[in-house]
Amino acid sequence: MKIKNIYAVYFSPTGNTKKIACFMAEKMAEQLNCPHKEISFTLPEERNQTYTFGPDDFVVIASPTYAGKLPNKILPDFKEKLKGDGSPAAALVTFGNRSFDNSLAELCAVLEASGFQTVAGGAFACRHAFTDKLAPGRPDEADLKELAILAERTADKLRNTDGIFSPVNVDGDADAPYYVPKGMDGQPAKFLKAVPKTHEELCIRCGACARLCPMGSIDPEEPGNVTGICIKCQSCIRGCPQQAKYFDDPAFLSHVAMLEENFAEPKKNHKYL
């Protein structure tokens, strides 16, 4: 089949999922000799519109893994705002060195239900949003080489078919429940209501945290005021130029410590065609 356009669509609060999506789209564009564009799906205003793709568009759609699945507060937007018309797609997820569990299966199911044809999939280990001690520096050069191979093989698959694809078979169960975070004591760590705090003596009221929040939940005039849902994405933490944002919730910190103790060994990527 002939592809005319390639798109990278990503929800990426801390940047690594964007890196994965855009890299694959760029490599696919090189292989298929067509233009590529990127569409951020991260900020609230970026998720207000519906994006519709045609049968000669190839779409790389990427999301981080949250508790073993897609981010639950963003899931409705994935379902309602991304529409395909038989559009071939690659489903990509990133995970912070624990496991992607069922996120890739869920993303594939969502895309198939929205008119896409999933022709490739991948789960790539990236630095954990919570801590630099898990998958530090990833995606690295070796990860991108793997992704380049996936892009090359996906391009071959597109060139050698007539446009009708069976859904890609990936690991996981789209209907499985979310992973339950554990603390250092092995018991469930309950931190759903935890919100980032602000070192007032460091904050310069630049508004970066408010602009970066994918839920629009930080008051730009009073950055210490969290007015809505926090999905623990760490965008405000990692994006603050003064390092003024932090979490002090005991259950959250216990969960991070558990992850650091038990999931430091580098995990492999998973690729599907």
Rank of each mutant, 00 (worst) to 15 (best):
C108D: 07
I149F: 11
G86V: 01
N72D: 15
G121H: 02
C108Y: 00
L144M: 15
L134D: 10
P76G: 10
L104S: 03
D85F: 02
L75G: 04
G122S: 06
T131S: 15
V110N: 01
R138G: 02
N102P: 04
L82Q: 04
S103V: 07
E112I: 06
E146T: 14
P136G: 08
K79N: 09
K81M: 11
K73S: 13
D143L: 11
G163C: 01
C126A: 15
G122Y: 05
V93W: 04
P136S: 08
E106Y: 11
R153L: 13
G122W: 01
V119P: 00
E141V: 11
R159G: 01
I74Y: 01
E152L: 12
L70I: 14
N102D: 15
S114W: 00
T131D: 12
D101V: 04
S114A: 12
S103P: 07
L150C: 06
N97I: 05
K79L: 07
K157L: 15
T94W: 03
A91C: 06
K145Q: 15
E112L: 01
K83M: 05
N97V: 05
R153W: 10
P76F: 06
G163K: 02
N72I: 14
F116G: 02
A90I: 12
A151S: 14
A109K: 12
A135S: 14
R153V: 12
A109L: 08
D156E: 13
E146Q: 14
A129T: 12
A155E: 08
D85K: 03
V93C: 13
D132I: 12
N72M: 13
A135P: 09
P136E: 10
F78D: 04
K69H: 07
S99I: 11
P71V: 12
D132G: 09
I149L: 15
Q117M: 14
A123H: 01
S114K: 03
R98Y: 13
A113L: 02
P76I: 11
A120W: 02
N102V: 08
L82R: 01
A125M: 03
G115V: 07
T161I: 00
F100L: 08
C126H: 05
A89T: 09
P88V: 05
V119T: 03
G96C: 09
P139R: 06
G137S: 12
P88E: 04
L82V: 04
T161S: 15
L75C: 03
E152T: 10
L92W: 03
P139N: 05
T118R: 02
K145C: 11
D162C: 04
D143P: 02
